[in-house]
């Protein structure tokens, strides 16, 4: 099945191509186009990558190579929201692994897994170390997390979701 970008995405990609005119190609727009494709189709399937390649006049192999290099891109669908829990040094020192464990228990997911609502990711430092342990969900930061509060944090996210696609 072949896919198509929405009018909004097509307009955004067109405007971005103007911003990189000096490059002489549309290649610099590939990350933005992949973010948009992931937003519109939920995952970067083969068809989605073919669409990006055709839109930017790039070889499929190049788009595939880029899509598989960066950790925010996914080839299969995930939950509506992605919870990225940092366990790096500053967070580890203040209970980051306990926080990750609490999310795993409360969501019934292991890190890396998804259900309809959530994808749970063990993240490297998210630049909020002074508020460790912390996590990021779209545009929302969860700061100074206490493991016993993780259940209510999840309830709050269900009421007030922050999908990553909201800023794309």
């Amino acid at each position: 099945m072949s896919l198509e970008f929405s009018a909004d995405a097509t307009r955004k990609i067109g405007a971005l191509c103007e911003r990189y005119v000096v490059s002489g190609t549309k290649k610099p727009v590939v990350l933005a186009a992949l973010h948009l494709a992931q937003k519109e189709f939920g995952a970067l399937t083969d068809d989605a990558l073919r669409l990006v390649a055709a839109t930017l006049d790039l070889p499929y192999a190049h788009v595939y190579g880029v899509a598989t290099f960066y950790t925010m891109f996914r080839r299969t669908p995930g939950g509506t929201q992605t919870i990225r829990v940092c366990t790096n040094i500053s967070c580890m020192l203040r209970g980051g692994y306990e926080v990750l464990g609490a999310f795993e228990t409360q969501l019934g997911l292991k890190k890396g897994e998804s259900n309809k609502d959530f994808t749970l990711v063990e993240e490297e430092c998210i630049a909020a170390c002074a508020n460790a342990p912390c996590a990021i969900v779209g545009t929302k930061y969860l700061l100074d997390i206490v493991p016993s509060k993780v259940g209510s944090i999840i309830e709050e996210l269900k009421r007030d979701p922050h999908p990553e696609s909201e800023v794309v």
Binding site: K27, V29, H35, V66, F69, Y70, T71
Partner: peptide, 27 residues
């Protein structure tokens, strides 16, 4: 001035990896 979003890769903080990523390549 154009704001260019990365997509998850620490190495893209290294300046030449960053430039490759800006050009639409692997970082």
């Amino acid at each position: 001035l154009t704001v260019h979003r990365g997509a998850g890769a620490y190495i893209c903080g290294e300046e030449t990896a960053l430039l490759n990523s800006l050009e639409g390549q692997r970082g």
